[in-house]
Amino acid sequence: MLEQMIQMAGWIVLQTAILLLLAPLVQGLIKKSKARLQSRIGPSILQPSYDIIKYLKKDAVISDKASWLTRVAPYIAFTAVITAGLLVPTFIVNAPLGVAGDIIMVIYLLGLARFFTALAALDAGSSFGGMGSSREMALGAIIEPAFLLALFTVCLLSGTTKLGQIVQVMSGKEWALIDPSYALAFLAMFIVVIAETGRIPVDNPDTHLELTMIHEGMLLEYSGRYLGLMLWAAEIKQLIMLNLFISAFLPWGMALDWSSIGAGAAIFIYGLKLALLGILLAVIETAYAKMRLYKVPKLLAASMALSVLAVIMRVVM
């Protein structure tokens, strides 16, 4: 029992480290790819990591209108996101907290982070915070059912909401992507990943134009350590979305246990999958433009339609 607990604690530490270190790298890779696609050389892929270190060491400025919420929210958002990350498998079929929670827990932990970010955005009383917050909640509300439906199509295959079991079932179906219902679900989920990571065509992560920001708008009043935590949390959330996507749709090559060779290969394959997904995100972001705010629900409705279609096909066929 004690041994098990120590093992679990070790796994938690390991996965936390993976999340913390890998998230800025993935962000850096996406930024680098985007720069290349814009004919620029672009910053080093380590730049987001440097940025976070810089922010964490800096003093913060906080509004005189703000309350304790502004100071507390980054910590809550950050830890909630990491905890969610501990529920999602990375390169091994299960996650450290796999026994304690499931997909719904992941969604709601991310929801907790979103809740506090959106709330803290209103704390300083600036209209940009309100703007970002209200847009985030409007789109978030539409993303949520699309997210659930897309995951639901995957859960339906395994009859459970436990990610570990889903991965196990899915990794047995190597040719599943040829299955049309699976392909539809894949597309549906991809749209959700784009929306949840706040990328074009839903949000523009690079813009600092006051009036068009969504996620950036909510962070406008943050600086120093608090901003660092918030940005880090956003990057980890992006990594979690990719992890979820990998677990649900590209589970091949995951290690089944901790044998050193299997795990080594699995880590390599995991890195490759992440890099490919990151570059894919960059390509999509480059080739598309940001949609009109009120057209975004239509995109997510398309994702929902795809999910429903996927379920119908699964049931009928």
């Binding site: 696609l37 814009q38 004919s39 620029r40 065509p201 813009t207 598309y288 433009a289 940001k290």
Partner: peptide, 16 residues
């Protein structure tokens, strides 16, 4: 104008 809707290729090509 492409920057107004985040169309990165338009911006970069226009700038070039």
């Amino acid at each position: 104008i492409c920057a107004g809707f985040g169309f990165a290729v338009g911006v970069s090509q226009g700038t070039i």
